[in-house]
Amino acid sequence: AQVDQSVFEELIRERLPELAEQVPDLSTLSSVSLSWFLTLFLSVLPFHSAVCVVDCFFFQGIKAIFKLGLAVLEANAAQLSACTDDGQALMILTSFLDRVGSEETPGAALCPPAEENSGSDADIPAVGHINITVLINESLEKFRDLTVRQIERLRCLHRIQVLQAHEDTIKENALRLVTPDVSISPENMSDIYDLFKTEHFISLYWGDSSSAAAAEAAAWQYSDSGRSFVERQYRLDRPQFKSLYGLLAPWPAVSNQHTDTLANRTFTLLDQDHDNLVTFKEFSSWLDTLYCEELNEKIRLLYRLHIPPALTEHEEDSSLRSTLLSTNRPLYLNKEPSVPAGAEEAVKDYQEQLKQMLQDLTKEKKKDVDQPLPLMNQ
């Protein structure tokens, strides 16, 4: 229906140029006509008249609806040109369509004169009864050169624009939801969103999409009642997340032998609702911690990767829990794993920071524990 609105707006400029000059913003007329294409005029015309329109639609196709819509606008061109707001245009078209009848319509008399109308409709000229058959014949005669091929060509042209506008709206809403909670610049957030969406589509259409599709369907059906549509629009499963992890992590994925393990643990840590999917908001929060937070927060994140729930029971009993992942070893960002000069001092520095972080965590736990009430002296 939105595509047909755009097509109808272009047809107005092409077939009714005088009306297009008087009404520069044709979005009002196209929005009023939305119900025409959604219901084939069934919601705006009397029943007997609407049956004639549906019969014409089954015989000639969608071009009959476009022709009838153009004929309705042409019949009210003078009044629409003098409109000052959207509400007045809507009232004019509604009043006109209410007075369109057929030979079978009971009581198809002329409308009451303008002086008998209510005060709210005083600025809308009264329109006499119009036979739907005459209106349809006039539309077919005046716009006889409008073909289905032309309409389909315009549909193909505007379909891409409508879909792109829809995607842009979703992107703006997603960034508006996430940006206040992170310190990453809006420009970088826009690039991250595009990369996030690209990875989602690449995995679905060119990768092994069986697990992703199953997880997506299960999440939509069972566990997403509390999330908005924007949060559910694009999400990554574990393989998709690992692919982006290797691109965006601050340490090189090729030379770091722990990247796969850290990616799995990070995904488990971010997947708080256990639906095997990570939302864009969760993904952005993780990136913000890695690149924009203080050093203590970064160390806290790395520490959480070595304890449950990131560290699963399977890893505790397997060889993944080795000395290579010990927190006594420093993490060299954007460097090769070769030990640089002064490595011992770096190890001590990280050890002191980890000890301080553990002390802070212990203090926070003590604050959360409710102190018992003192016993009463009886």
Rank of each mutant, 00 (worst) to 15 (best):
A1M: 12
E10I: 10
L11N: 00
I12C: 02
E18D: 08
L19I: 00
Q22A: 13
V23T: 03
P24N: 02
T28Q: 09
V32M: 06
L38Y: 11
L40A: 15
L42M: 12
V44F: 01
P46I: 07
F47D: 10
A50P: 05
V51R: 10
D55A: 10
F59W: 14
G61S: 01
A64Y: 05
I65Y: 05
G69K: 03
A71D: 09
L73A: 02
A77M: 14
A82D: 01
A82Y: 02
C83N: 04
T84E: 13
D86I: 11
L90F: 13
T94D: 10
S95E: 11
L97V: 05
P106Q: 07
A108N: 14
S118L: 11
A122F: 04
A122Q: 06
I124P: 01
V127P: 01
N131S: 04
T133P: 07
N137L: 09
E138A: 14
R144G: 11
R144V: 14
R149P: 05
R149N: 11
L154V: 00
H158V: 00
V162C: 02
E172V: 15
E172L: 13
L177T: 09
V178Q: 04
V182H: 00
I184A: 01
P186V: 07
E187N: 12
M189L: 02
I192D: 07
L195H: 08
D208C: 02
D208W: 03
S209M: 06
A213G: 12
A215D: 02
E216G: 07
A219K: 09
W220S: 13
S225T: 15
Q233F: 15
R238N: 07
P239G: 02
Q240K: 03
L247K: 13
P250N: 00
Q257T: 15
H258V: 12
H258F: 09
T259K: 00
D260V: 05
R265M: 01
R265V: 04
H274T: 10
K281P: 06
E282W: 06
L287W: 02
E293C: 12
E293H: 13
E294W: 03
L295E: 15
R300S: 11
L302V: 03
L302K: 11
T323M: 15
T323A: 14
N328P: 09
P330K: 04
Y332K: 15
K335Q: 15
E336F: 01
E345F: 07
D360T: 01
K363N: 13
K366F: 01
K367D: 11
K367A: 13
Q371V: 15
L373N: 09
L373R: 12
